[in-house]
Simulated scan of single mutants.
Amino acid sequence: MTFLPTLRNLVSAYQAFERYSAPDVKAMGLTTTQFDVIATLGNQPPMTCKELGEKTLVTKGTLTGVLERLEAKGILERKLNPEDARSQMIGLTTVGQTLFEKVFPAHLSHLNKVFEKLNTKELAEITKSLQALKNAFEK
C-alpha cells in the first residue's frame, strides 16, 4: 500500500484548498457549488444540463436544486433546446453575467495569493502529477 502517503497528501491538499477558498466564495454571498456553476457558465454560450454537469464538479442531483435556486435569483435562465426539445439550454442572465464578471476575477485573485508562492516548474510538476493520477483512475 505504497500509495497511502500520496492519498493522504492529496486529501489534505484538497481540504486545505477548501478551507482557503470556501470562505472567500461565501463572503461573495454564494455557495461553492453556485460559484462553480456561475464560473462555468460565464462568458460561454448556453449549454445543456448534461454539458454543465460534465464541466462542473456538481452531481446531477445537486445540480438540479442549485439551478432552481440560481434561476429564482435571476442569475440564470433555462430555455428549450432548439435542437432537442427534450433538453434545456442553461445560460447566465445579464444579472448573472455581471455577477460572474465581479466574483470570478476576485476569486482568482484570492487564489493567486497562494499559487504565486509556487514557481513555474513546481506548478508544471503538480499539474502533470495530478493529470497522471486522473488518467490512472479513468483507465
Rank of each mutant, 00 (worst) to 15 (best):
M1P: 11
T2R: 14
L4P: 04
L10V: 09
V11I: 15
Q15K: 12
F17Q: 10
F17M: 12
R19P: 02
Y20P: 00
Y20R: 05
Y20H: 08
A22R: 07
D24K: 15
V25Y: 05
T31H: 01
T32R: 07
T33F: 01
Q34K: 09
D36Y: 01
T40W: 00
N43Y: 10
P45S: 10
M47K: 06
M47N: 04
E51P: 01
E51C: 02
T62L: 00
L63S: 06
G65D: 07
G65E: 03
V66F: 00
V66C: 05
V66H: 05
L70V: 03
E71R: 08
K73Q: 14
G74D: 06
I75T: 03
L76N: 06
R78A: 14
K79R: 14
P82L: 02
P82W: 04
E83F: 06
D84K: 05
Q88L: 06
T94H: 10
T94G: 14
V95R: 15
G96R: 05
Q97K: 08
E101H: 09
V103Q: 02
A106H: 08
H110N: 11
L111C: 10
L111V: 13
N112F: 13
N112I: 05
V114H: 12
E116S: 15
L118V: 05
E122A: 13
A124W: 00
E125C: 00
I126C: 08
T127D: 15
T127R: 14
K128C: 02
S129M: 11
S129G: 11
A132E: 13
L133W: 09
K134N: 07
N135S: 13
N135T: 13
A136L: 12
E138H: 08
